[in-house]
Structure formats: C-alpha cells, structure tokens
Write a protein that binds this DNA or RNA. Structure first.
Lengths: 196, 196
DNA sequence: CCTACCGATCGGTAGG
DNA sequence: CCTACCGATCGGTAGG
C-alpha cells in the first residue's frame, strides 16, 4: 500500500530537492539558479555539490518521484476488480489529490520536464506514454463493456489528462479538501460533461 | 469579421516575432537567445535591435496577438443569438482551430506568459480573467435556461479551458483538419463526457 | 561547509 | 546591417 510507509531518514539531497521544487515551480528550472536554492537553505552555492551531482539531478529526483507515485497508484487501481468507470474515477481523484498534496513536485514535473538531460528526458517520455496507454486500455475496456460511450479512447484520455494537468487552481481549494465538493465537481465534469 | 482581412505589409518586427515564436516554443523564452533568433534570420544579434526595443517586446507581440484573436472571436460569439450550448461549442472549436493554425503563438502565450514584464504580465492576467468570466457567464446562462446540467460554472469553464490549453498533440492531427472528426471528438468529450 | 575563481553565455549598447 | 565590446549572471571546480 502506498499510503502506509515506514518513515525513513530524509537525505540531505531530498531536502535540497524539496526546496528546489518550490523555486523551480515559482521561477522555472533555468530561471531558478543554484545560488537561489542555496540562499533558501542558508548555505553557499558550492556547498550544494556535496550532496548532489549537478542541477539536473534535482530535476530528475523530482520528476522520478512524481512518475513513481502515479505508477504505483495505477498499478493498485488496475489490480482491483472494479468497473472501469470506477477505475477511471479513482485515477482522476488521485491526480487531484497529487495536485493538492504535492503541488510543487507535480507542477515541476508537468512544466519543466523538457529541461531533463537527454537520457532522462527519453525515459520520462516513455514512462508517460506507457501511463497513457494503460489509461486508454481502461477506456477501451469500458467501451466494450458498455460502461462508456462509443468514442475515441485516445482522445478521451488525452483530454482528461490535459484537463487535470492544467488545473493549477487546485491550490486555492486546499482548505476545502475535506468536504470534497470541489473534487466531486471536477470528477463529474470530466466523466459526464456539461450538456444535458 | 475576423476572417476577412485587408492584407497589409508585414513589418520586420512581425517577421522577427514569427521566428521568435517558433524558437520560444521549442526552447522556452529564456532558453532561446537573441543570438538564436538572429541566426535563424541570418543576421547578427545586434541588428535585431533596429526593429524591436528588446527581447521582452517579442513576447509581448506574441501574447497580445493571441489575446486579441480570442477576444475578437468571443465578441462575435456573444453577439450572435444562439443557444449557450452552441456558443460554447463555437468557442471550443475556435480554441482548437487556433491550436492548429497558430500553434507557435498560442503555445508561447500559454506557456511563456510568466516571462512578460511586470506591467504586461498584469494586463495579461486581467485579460485572461475577463475572458474566463465571460465564459462563466455563458455557462451560467445555459444552466438557467436548462441547456446545461446544474454544476459549478467556474469549475466547468476552468476544466474546459485547461483541457484545451494542454491539448498540444493537436499538431499531429493537422493533416486531418478537413474531415473534422478529431475536432468533433474533442467537442463531444468536453460537452457530454465519457460516461453513459 | 567555505572562499576564490573559471569559462561560457546572456541581453544589450556604442559607434559607424 | 555590422564589429567590437560591456557588465551581469550562470553552473560548476579547486582546494582546503
């Protein structure tokens, strides 16, 4: 279960990555300098290199963590035997939760991944493509079982992912996390649309 | 009518902005240097400054053009007396068309606006907020007239705009522009959802 | 963890 | 439209 974790010692590299995520989100990967990150940690820039190899490694830590979280969740969802509509709903809700709880990491992964070094960029794109393909599979299966309308599964998945990725105003609703009416409203909108 | 225009001489600044838009999209605003832009135009970087004030002006030209196009279209849509569902559909189709025909400009406006100078950034955000508010008004009116389901108009609008903004894979479908099945599929998805 | 420092690159100007 | 050049800032290293 991804929710129950043995708390382990947070490495200094991870502490740096947390601060870097905040600054990368606010200013962008290239615009946030190593000196900015060092300042935020009250150390000098060269000291960072005792804990990390280079700037790109910070971006890698962030993007990999996010990809892993989504991968873990998807695996859990796939293994449960539920209607595909329920699976899709759970995935949508997970995306929303990630936006609330892990905003900086998710935002950086969503908007700064192009700055990954070539090899990691490739891995990232492959993993993302794989994730999409597995969602498409759920939609295809749902259409077959007449849970969903007949539509182009790829378009459906990309539209939903696109909507979820862009919904950065989640943040404002953090306080309302409890009553979940906001989350429910998005889920409803994505699953059943707006038209009568 | 926004579609019929008297063809006027394209200024050198606009030619530069076109090339800048391509590079800003590919590399990002800060990552695409004035030297990159100059190279692409087969001139030296300092020569650019005979036609534009500075780098930021290029970004302004791009973002303002996009904002103006959407503003023009929205005004046209608002003035027609049609069901709100039809209005919303027209707006969605316009966003998709912009993605196809004006990809670089739209992409830069969507992803690089944070690099606008403070004053222009403010104007940009105000204009965007205004645009959203007018869409919300259409949805509100549609709910009143029972064209739409009862839902939170703001969430509906932001979800739709978010989906449209992120759908960058439009590009791949440029060839299929004619049969419009792709466009229709997105419209259907956004208006009526996926669930049966 | 620090000071001192490097080569590269940036946006932009001077002056023609 | 060019050459020559500037100050600022960057990621990162040397050496302790």
């Amino acid at each position: 279960m991804s929710k129950i974790k043995t708390t382990r010692k947070t490495s200094t590299a991870e502490v740096i990555a947390e601060k870097a995520a905040l600054l990368f989100r606010q200013k962008g990967y290239n615009e946030a300098s190593m000196r900015n990150i060092a300042d935020a940690l009250n150390i000098e820039a060269p000291s960072l290199y005792n804990h990390i190899k280079n700037k790109a490694e910070l971006l890698q830590i962030i993007c990999k963590k996010v990809a892993q979280d989504f991968e873990d969740n998807l695996l859990e969802v796939e293994q449960d035997s539920q209607p595909n509509s329920k699976k899709l709903e759970r995935i949508i809700r997970f995306h929303i939760k990630m936006s609330m709880r892990n905003f900086d990491f998710l935002h950086v992964s969503n908007h700064q991944w192009k700055s990954l070094p070539p090899d990691e960029l490739n891995q990232f794109l492959i993993a993302r493509k794989k994730y999409e393909t597995r969602l498409v599979q759920i939609v295809k299966d749902g259409i077959l079982k007449k849970e969903f309308k007949i539509l182009q599964p790829q378009v459906a998945v990309l539209t939903i992912l696109s909507a979820l990725r862009g919904l950065e105003f989640y943040q404002k609703y953090k306080k309302h996390t409890r009553d979940r009416s906001f989350e429910n409203s998005i889920v409803k909108q994505l699953l059943t649309g707006i038209a009568k």
